[in-house]
């Protein structure tokens, strides 16, 4: 297994290099200029030119490409073109909040999504099935920012249960959780939808398998059938979906981060894109892609935990 992990990590490096190269090219092809973005609407062309020079944007492309790459090899993610802050420290500051939010969203999605999906599968084409499906589809269909705002208006402004904005300090767990509740719910509702859908169809598959029929014929109770036999077999594809969705959540939680004024990776990425902060965008995406690699690896490893028969080569 150790060999498997090492091989997977080694294979990840060319992927990350390709990610970096693509971002490097993409953002430079796109119109817009970090110097204009940094100086704002009032700047003269002279000042813009001077700043471009200072930002190192007038050096040949391959020099810019190489310099950043060399930094990565040394473990240096560079400094933002706009704010000149170290990107490494910036990511270190927001990553715990991003992971916390993602984890909470996935947790809510799993806790509610799997039972919901099982209920739907067992009661296929009956009322419980329709209700569970309409609920989960509603979850998918509401744009994330809209859902966030509705949650704020209901639970923060009207009921005053939770705060509107910001992320609580980790040193104060109660405050931290109070701040986490609404954004996690906003992400969680979307997650529930995905997980419930997947669980339902996976369970339908498994429930048809011969050994389940045998188990039923042997007279095991319905609950016993579900728990004993189906869950383990259905869990692997569910874990796969959870893996991909977790990776997507990190990037797409940007809407939630904006609405709830939380620090986070998604917000930094979109901000870097809109500001044309070349250096920050490259590093953020590379870090994000590394996270995706790690999550995918963890997902694959989780199969072995779910089903010990699976071997890694």
């Amino acid at each position: 297994m150790a060999r498997y992990v090492i091989r997977r990590i080694l294979v990840a490096f060319p992927t990350l290099l390709a990610v970096y190269t693509l971002v490097f090219l993409f953002i430079r092809v796109a119109p817009g200029d970090p110097a204009v973005a940094a100086l704002g609407d009032y700047a003269s062309a002279e000042a813009v030119q001077a700043l471009r020079e200072r930002m190192g944007l007038n050096t040949p492309l391959w020099v810019q490409y190489g310099a950043t790459l060399l930094g990565y090899v040394r473990g240096d993610l560079g400094r933002s073109l706009i704010t000149n802050i170290s990107i490494g420290s910036q990511i270190a500051a927001v990553l715990p909040h991003t992971l916390e939010l993602t984890f909470a969203g996935v947790l809510i999605g799993t806790i509610f999504g799997i039972p919901l999906g099982i209920i739907a599968a067992v009661h296929r084409n009956r009322l419980a099935d329709y209700l569970s499906r309409v609920f989960s589809l509603a979850g998918i269909s509401i744009p994330a920012f809209y859902l966030g705002i509705l949650l704020i208006l209901a639970f923060a402004v009207k009921l005053r249960w939770f705060p509107v904005m910001g992320a609580g300090d980790f040193s104060n767990p109660v405050e931290n959780l109070r701040h986490l509740a609404l954004p996690a719910l906003a992400l969680g509702i979307i997650m529930i939808a995905f997980v419930a859908r997947m669980t339902r169809s996976c369970f339908l598959n498994v429930l048809r398998e011969d050994y389940i029929r045998t188990a039923r014929a042997k007279g095991l109770s319905e609950r016993g059938v579900i728990l004993l036999h189906s869950l383990r077999n259905a869990l692997i594809p569910i874990a796969a979906v959870l893996g991909t969705q977790t990776a997507l959540l990190i990037g797409d939680s940007v809407m939630t981060e904006i609405v709830f004024s939380r620090p986070g990776m998604g917000k930094l990425i979109v901000q870097a894109m809109l500001q044309r902060d070349y250096i920050a965008l490259q590093s953020l995406i590379v870090v994000y892609a590394s996270l995706v690699v790690v999550i995918n690896l963890l997902t694959d490893l989780s199969y072995g935990v779910i089903d010990p028969r699976i071997r890694y080569e």
Partner: peptide, 11 residues
Amino acid sequence: DVTARLSALLT
């Protein structure tokens, strides 16, 4: 987001 700002002001 303006709705978030206004909400935070109201609370």
